[in-house]
């Protein structure tokens, strides 16, 4: 199976190819291992997917602090809550679709309502899961997690941001959901960037258009904005890696600057980043919002690149959406 996104996410000719590609899940595995070395209160749980989520690295180094729960996501979440209640900082991982869907009520009751210090770090979010198909492609996970009081929702844009996120949430007390991906993706964030919970990263605020993106869409949005700006359309890009709590000031200032917003996410356009932005703007700064993402449909099997094209989650489509919205 293809684990690398080639087009359009892979750097094209003339672009910076010095940095290697890396999957956010790989960065997670390494960051968790490093955290484990530094802190004895870090524990990890997995539901028989530790080789894929990369918690296997932690498991190998700290077998006493790793709990493979078997294929039992609901029990994994409850156990994680119990560990948190004895002062441990549990990282519970599996695929995003199972973590958030199969165990939603457990997350609601024993993590969010009980406000336990559980870190839910799920991999294989979005359609770039690829060939495994719709059953394994989480397109509703952000919506599911965002609706829960006390929950924080984070979608890192690259491997380096993932490392920064994992370190930050280990120090934060309370429930956190982090959505990671399967495919290798380019680095998009500046070298000196450090993640802060609830703070968006602004590459640029555009006068004509602004794209608010998360996850793999940040790279796609940057490429689209570059082309648009060359054509004279000043297009901004914001990495909204914390989807909850939303960085409201940054969204409002972008909306105020360009008068319309395009959101871009590898998720359903219902309930995710696009939904969050619309909820805020409709109350505080009513402007047109175009949501680019999965249009209330399930995914299907195919290579990650094919699937992104098939569903219009591409640089070309983002450019088209910006231009169409400008004409209105």
């Amino acid at each position: 199976m293809t684990e690398t996104l080639h087009n359009p996410v892979l750097p094209g000719p003339g672009q910076d190819t010095e940095k290697k590609l890396k999957a956010t899940r790989d960065a997670y595995g390494e960051a968790l291992l490093e955290l484990g070395k530094k802190r004895s209160d870090i524990v990890a749980l997995d539901a028989d997917l530790s080789g894929s989520t990369k918690t296997c690295k932690f498991a190998k180094a700290f077998p006493d602090r790793f709990f493979n729960m078997g294929i039992a996501e609901q029990d994994m979440i409850g156990t994680a809550a119990g560990l948190a209640l004895t002062g441990k900082v549990p990282f519970a991982s599996t695929f995003a679709v199972f973590e958030t869907g199969r165990a939603w009520d457990q997350i609601r009751l024993t993590v969010c309502y009980s406000n336990t210090n559980v870190k839910l770090v799920a991999t294989h979010g979005g359609i770039t899961v690829g060939e495994d198909g719709a059953s394994h492609q989480a397109l509703e996970d952000i919506a599911l997690m965002r609706a829960l009081p006390n929950m924080n929702v984070i979608v890192p844009a690259d491997a380096a941001e993932t490392t920064s996120v994992i370190n930050a949430i280990a120090d934060y007390k309370g429930p956190v959901y982090v959505r990671l991906g399967r495919a290798k993706i380019p680095y998009v964030m500046p070298d000196d960037y450090k993640f802060t919970l609830g703070k968006a990263f602004v590459f640029h605020i555009g006068k004509d258009a602004n794209i608010i993106a998360a996850g793999i869409m940040v790279d796609i949005a940057k490429k689209a904005a570059e082309i648009l700006s060359k054509e004279g359309i000043d297009t901004g890009v914001i990495n909204m890696s914390t989807i909850k709590p939303l960085d409201e000031e940054t969204v409002l200032s972008a909306a105020g600057s360009s008068g319309f917003i395009v959101t871009a996410e590898e998720h359903s356009i219902i309930g995710g980043l696009g939904g969050a932005v619309c909820e805020l703007l409709s109350e505080r700064c009513p402007v047109r919002v175009k949501r680019v993402g999965m249009k209330d449909i399930f995914g299907c099997s195919g290579s990650p690149d094919e699937l992104l094209k098939y569903h219009g989650i591409t640089v070309e489509n983002l450019i088209k959406e910006v231009k169409t919205s400008l004409k209105k």
Partner: peptide
Amino acid sequence: IEVSTGSLGQGLSVANGMALGLKLDDN
């Protein structure tokens, strides 16, 4: 109250997690 309950079937998992955490601390 150690953990919120009410949606059935969840307490034993939490109890296991606590028991494991206590063992890690030799409590």
